[in-house]
């Protein structure tokens, strides 16, 4: 695997887990019982832990300054999936999006595990071992939806599914993802043949940033980004020192930028 490809893939999962972790923390108080809160806090802790581990590993492996990936990038250099940009509109949309994001991220992590780079293989396997429990909880939440929430989930599905499918570069992963999703959701929501046929295929329509796996020039909403990397005075003062080595002028993908001399196809 071309080194930049792996680097980009690792950033896609690290950054998507980063934002996904914040979905849990920002939505925390919407839990409905004690076990919702333990699960949400626990999953958030894990997801943020995955991001932290990948950031630290990548900074060592690619010889970047420590904390470069956390504090040294602008929002339009972050590789988070577009699926997580728009806030959940309700409990059903929340659970559906958590589900789609978790399964999609694991599809890619699992594929990237097939590498000779031992630490990457090891780390991503550990991600899976922890995500196993995230998906258990999400399964429980899906099963516990009431009738009205199932309707909400059905209504939210086309929009969220489209963004989840677009995220995939690899046709075989995308096909397998669809299969898993339909197997899971079929017993929960009835979809007529016509409804099934009308579901999006996830074709990319706008100009695409292949490295970030999202529409070119797009980025998460500013208020979400502020939750991810807080810049209030109190947060800046409390930043641990270790961040001072961050270099604002590092371009992580110098070689494959579009304006380079290599021809584009």
């Amino acid at each position: 695997m071309n080194d930049d490809t792996m680097k980009a893939q690792l950033l896609c999962v690290a950054d998507s887990n980063w934002v996904l972790g914040h979905w849990y923390t920002v939505c925390m108080l919407n839990g409905r019982e004690l076990t919702d809160f333990t699960s949400m806090a626990g999953i958030a802790e894990d997801k943020l832990g995955h991001t932290r581990a990948l950031f630290r590993f990548m900074e060592e492996y690619y010889e970047l300054p420590e904390y470069q990936l956390e504090f040294g990038r602008a929002v339009d250099q972050v590789h988070n999936m577009e699926l997580l940009d728009a806030p959940p509109q309700g409990w059903a949309d929340f659970i559906l999006t958590l589900y789609l994001a978790d399964v999609a991220i694991w599809q890619v992590e699992n594929a990237v595990r097939d590498t000779d780079v031992a630490p990457v293989k090891n780390l991503l396997t550990k991600f899976g071992e922890e995500a196993y429990f995230h998906q258990l909880c999400i399964d429980g939440w899906l099963k516990a939806l009431d009738d009205a929430e199932r309707d909400d989930l059905k209504a939210a599905l086309p929009g969220r599914l489209e963004l989840a499918l677009q995220w995939f570069d690899e046709p075989e992963l995308k096909a397998r993802f669809s299969e898993l999703v339909f197997n899971k959701l079929a017993p929960i929501i009835d979809l007529s043949d016509a409804e099934l046929a009308a579901l999006p295929a996830g074709d990319r329509t706008s100009a695409w940033d292949a490295l970030r796996r999202r529409p070119e020039g797009s980025a998460m909403p500013p208020r979400l980004w502020e939750a991810v990397v807080p810049t209030s005075e109190d947060a800046l003062i409390a930043r641990r020192p270790l961040a001072v080595s961050v270099d604002d002028n590092i371009d992580l993908f110098v070689k494959v930028r579009k304006d380079e001399t290599e021809p584009q196809f």
Partner: peptide
């Protein structure tokens, strides 16, 4: 949460909540 400065700090807040609610 809003002033927790970095990932490690946010993890610590999550862990506190998990622990106490647990």
């Amino acid at each position: 949460y809003p002033t927790a400065p970095d990932i490690g700090a946010k993890v610590a807040v999550c862990a506190t909540i998990l622990d106490e609610v647990g």
